[in-house]
């Protein structure tokens, strides 16, 4: 009884051997596995469903052709795919530096005894919970009309940047906080300035955590349709974005548009586009995992 219980544990984990496994612990483990199963099974089911539904349309036409409402068999998502890549790349460009620098300020420089710093912190946490459509209204009123950027790639990526900025800030702060205080003290005691300590010690050590947080943020941004619809994201466009001032559409809008068509061919097309969206997301995730492994420090 006891030997089998010991071998079932991962090596190196010390275990206090008792007589058998207490009932409570068994329930606890069952609970853990059940919780894991909910997420994994749901995801597997969803993936199977979209791949099966979209299989007939997972062909080259999907990324070489533009939308076609008259003949679904010729329709593709080229403008939506290029639009998504444009919008997400620019979103990353705008929100990652801003978010990381804000996090550095809040963690390394801000004096928490000052009320305004605490107010900023509370505000950022609240902003993370604001519904995305509110950012759409903000983007339309301030960025599109106020700043006069119009219904463009630029407006969309700035709006999405604002939307995910709180997530980037919060996760970057966690990553910076996880860097042991002793590292900073050692660096400072060797004569490094505060800037050098942050630049050479804290930030490299925090990259893995920041990368994970950023990818979560961008994954949220890539799936947004509601705020972009409000900003004038298009459902029919037969050219790729040519620059930041170009009109655009993104995959979630295209998917939403196809799903609400009455013809079954469009539903298959929507599923195929969902698979493409997932593949793009997966590529981004792989990049984040590579970054994390590349920069992970062991103390």
């Amino acid at each position: 009884m006891i030997p089998t219980a010991v071998t079932s544990d991962p090596p190196g984990v010390p275990r206090l051997a008792g007589r058998g496994t207490p009932l409570r612990e068994r329930f606890f483990r069952l609970g853990l596995r059940a919780s894991l199963a909910v997420g994994v099974l749901f995801l597997a089911g969803l993936l199977t469903y979209v791949v099966v539904e979209g299989w007939p349309r997972l062909d080259a036409k999907l990324w070489t052709n533009f939308p076609d409402i008259i003949d679904p068999s010729r329709a593709g998502a080229r403008s939506a795919i290029t639009g998504t890549v444009w919008v997400i790349s620019l979103t990353a460009l705008y929100c990652l530096p801003t978010g990381v620098l804000t996090a550095v300020y809040l963690e390394e420089y801000a004096d928490r005894d000052r009320w305004w710093n605490r107010a900023i912190e509370i505000n950022i946490q609240n902003l993370a919970a604001v519904p995305s459509i509110v950012y759409g209204i903000l983007g339309l009123g301030v960025i599109s009309r106020g700043l006069g950027f119009g219904q463009t790639v630029l407006t969309a990526s700035l709006t999405l940047s604002l939307l995910v900025l709180p997530i980037v800030i919060i996760s970057s702060r966690e990553a910076i906080r996880a860097v042991p205080q002793s590292i900073r003290q050692a660096s400072l005691s060797l004569g490094a300035t505060r800037w050098q300590t942050i630049r050479r010690q804290v930030l490299p050590a925090a990259v893995p955590g920041m990368a994970t947080g950023s990818i979560l943020a961008l994954s949220r941004a890539i799936g947004e349709a509601a705020p972009l619809l409000l900003l004038g994201g298009l459902t029919f466009i037969t050219f790729n974005p040519t620059g930041v001032h170009s009109q655009f559409t993104v995959l979630p809008i295209q998917i939403f548009n196809w799903i609400s068509q009455s013809r079954a061919e469009f539903t298959a097309l929507a599923s195929a586009a969902i698979v493409v969206l997932l593949v793009i997301l997966l590529l981004m995730n792989s990049l984040a995992i590579w970054l994390r492994n590349h920069f992970t420090h062991r103390w």
Partner: peptide, 26 residues
Amino acid sequence: VAPLSTAAAQLFQQHHPGVRITVGTS
């Protein structure tokens, strides 16, 4: 109405490839 405008845009663009027509649904 968007499907109508989209179909119109598609038919039009086949004869006038230089014209870009975009349809939104706000």
